[in-house]
Write a protein that binds this DNA or RNA. Structure first.
Length: 558
RNA sequence: GCGCCCGUAGCUCAAUGGAUAGAGUAGCGGUCUUCGAAACCGUUGGUUGCGCGUUCGAAUCGCGCCGGGCGCACCA
């Protein structure tokens, strides 16, 4: 379904052009027309300030321009009435019967409601999660995966071809520390006096895994030379402990990735060398103090970045270069979105510079930053560190609070908002989490529809023109906004707007339910019952779409 | 010190540069013998941190302060 707003814009543009054709308005190029939803009741469904914006170029008073446009608007079944208001607004009210008729459209479209008619043919990759694979996911990553997943859903809903990816950082020093730590714990479990590495991972889970592996695999790693043993047990731990645990956690959050991408492969398949070659050819690589640098400052960044450290090992940025070369060039995504915590915000200019140095449009990479969540327990701040093992896992959280409640809580704030998450309150809050309000509305509709069906009421067709109660109209209006909410939220990478939409829609339904008896036992009300059942069914579709975009269940019962 | 983000009702947060800034929650007072009370209704609550600018119009854009968060490694 075309967003209603787009339709309104078309009508207004036609009005301007027709007024120009008749010489009522002077000739000028018609600018982009902005239309917004007035907050004030009585200002119609849509309002445009275009007459005020045209005042200068048309050399006419805004009110006269507005009247001229109004007088030349083409007939459109969706438009009910048009008013001009000082200082020059044009307010349009949608036609009630037309709004009601859209119930059929929503029901026909079903799961397609909210999506544009045609796919955009734009391939987008969203990469999120991507925690160092050195242990279970901690709660700090909850906002990352939930935001990334909702954004991916949202973009897909807006017609993009979306791929969801988890980047497995299985190369580099962090991995090495993990491997050595795991080996030490394993050896210790077998009574060997192998010390933990200096910067090793002290977490309880490493100890546990070391013991597990000792039990399951015996001494086989002990009998290998040290280097080999560390590499082998490290790989074993990564593949059989860390990744399965991460997979399980995100799956229980309702997240399914399309691809798990291994950092290591970048060095094995030549991506790294190819990307480096491009940077070198562009003259962006230099050697200094025994290290190899990417000269990001030449592309406007505040500082350069090390590619190869003086010890000969690639720095993490080298992987980033190769990885983004792979995404943007080898795999050819039109747009790549990385979801990052705001603690990495300082790297953004260098990442953008790198994309440009690869000869690409820097807008093809978008870094979606979210503010870190401050974790609390009864008002006390909890500091997390995988290194020291001081952590709260995502698993602990979702064992206590339903994944949907966690998701809604995290999605419903803009990525820029700093938020506190109190573990002690989380359980209590789950009861009053607005997510249940939305889900309840969906279940409530399902219940009414079940009742209707049990009573043998068929609502395959209805006279939708019977819908005219203010609460019916309000519900219709909210419901039909979904397409533009999806479009706007996707354009701004702002999944939280979907959460607010869902809440408002649920609210409109509850008001309708209060004011309008849906299933009536009186035979003279049968036609009205059918019309209201169809309206309720359409509202259910819209609620389900919003919940699905947020990655949540739309329950038939609860 | 420099950079990015934030500052809106007691609290948690909304609001593509548009008209009289909205929700939730907390507080107070009401509503279940008919479709799900996980719901609904009413009510209290604001100098949008402060100042100056930009323009027909600013919570929104610019500059300067004040306050908070996060960065500023040959770690990731």
């Amino acid at each position: 379904m075309q967003p209603i707003r787009d339709r309104v814009i078309d009508v207004i543009r036609a009005g301007i052009e027709r007024a120009q054709a008749e010489g009522v308005l002077p000739g000028f190029e018609v600018p982009a027309i902005t239309v917004d939803k007035p907050r004030q009741e009585g200002h119609g469904d849509y309002a445009t300030p275009v007459a005020m914006q045209l005042a200068r170029v048309a050399r006419m008073a805004p009110l006269r321009i507005a009247s001229a446009i109004r007088d030349h608007l083409p007939e459109d079944p969706s438009i009910g009435s048009v008013e001009v208001a000082p200082p020059g607004f044009i307010n349009l009210t949608l036609s009630g019967p037309w709004l009601a008729s859209q119930v059929d459209t929503v029901l026909e479209e079903g799961e397609q409601f909210g999506r544009p008619a045609c796919p955009r043919g734009v391939r987008v990759q969203v990469e999120y999660g991507s925690a160092n694979p050195t242990g279970p996911l901690h709660v700090g990553f909850a906002r990352n995966v939930v935001l990334g997943d909702a954004l991916a859903n949202l973009l897909a809903e807006a017609g993009y071809d979306v791929q969801r990816e988890y980047y497995v950082n299985d190369a580099g020093t962090q991995m090495r520390q993990f491997q050595e730590s795991l080996y030490a714990r394993y050896a210790q479990a077998l009574g060997q006096d192998v010390p933990m590495p200096e910067k090793g991972y002290q977490g309880w889970y490493i100890t546990e895994w070391g013991r597990d592996i000792a039990e399951a695999e015996g001494r086989r790693f002990l009998d290998l030379p040290y280097e080999e043993a560390v590499a082998e047990i490290g790989e074993y731990g990564l593949q059989r402990r860390v990744l399965p645990s991460v997979r399980r956690d995100v799956e229980d959050m309702g997240i399914r990735y399309d691809n798990w991408f291994s950092e290591r492969t970048l060095y094995q398949d030549g991506s790294f060398e190819r990307a480096m070659e491009i940077l070198r050819e562009g003259g962006y690589v230099s050697e200094r103090d025994g290290a190899v640098w990417f000269e990001a400052t030449r592309l406007g960044a505040d500082k350069d970045e090390v590619l190869i450290r003086s010890n000969g090992l690639p720095a993490y940025f080298a992987s980033d270069v190769a990885y983004h070369y792979d995404k943007l060039v080898t795999r050819g995504f039109d747009l790549v979105i990385d979801v990052w915590g705001a603690d990495h915000q300082g790297h953004v200019p260098r990442m953008k510079a790198m994309v440009e140095a690869l000869g690409l449009d820097r807008d093809r990479l978008h870094l979606l930053l979210y503010q870190l969540v401050t974790l609390k327990r009864g008002g006390e701040i909890v500091r997390l560190s995988k290194r020291t093992g001081e952590m709260v896992t995502l698993r602990e959280l979702i064992d206590e609070v339903s994944p949907d409640a966690v998701r809604y809580f995290l999605i419903s704030r803009s990525p820029d908002s700093q938020m506190d998450f109190d573990l002690e309150l989380a359980v209590k809050q789950s009861d009053e989490n607005p997510v249940f309000y939305v889900k309840y509305a969906h279940a409530r509709i399902a219940s009414v529809l079940r009742l209707a069906e049990a009573s043998g009421l068929s609502y395959e067709q209805a006279d939708l023109g019977l819908l005219e109660h203010p609460s019916e109209m309000a519900l219709l209006r909210h419901m039909l906004q979904l397409p533009e909410v999806v479009l706007d939220a996707a354009a701004d990478f702002a999944p939280h707007r979907v959460a607010y939409y869902a809440y408002d829609l649920a609210k409109a339904f509850h008001a309708f339910y209060r004011d309008c008896r849906i299933v009536s036992s009186l035979t003279e009300d049968t036609e009205m019952t059918k019309a209201r059942l169809r309206l309720a069914a359409a509202a259910k579709v819209a609620l389900a779409r919003a919940l699905t975009v947020m990655g949540m269940e739309a329950p038939e019962r609860m």
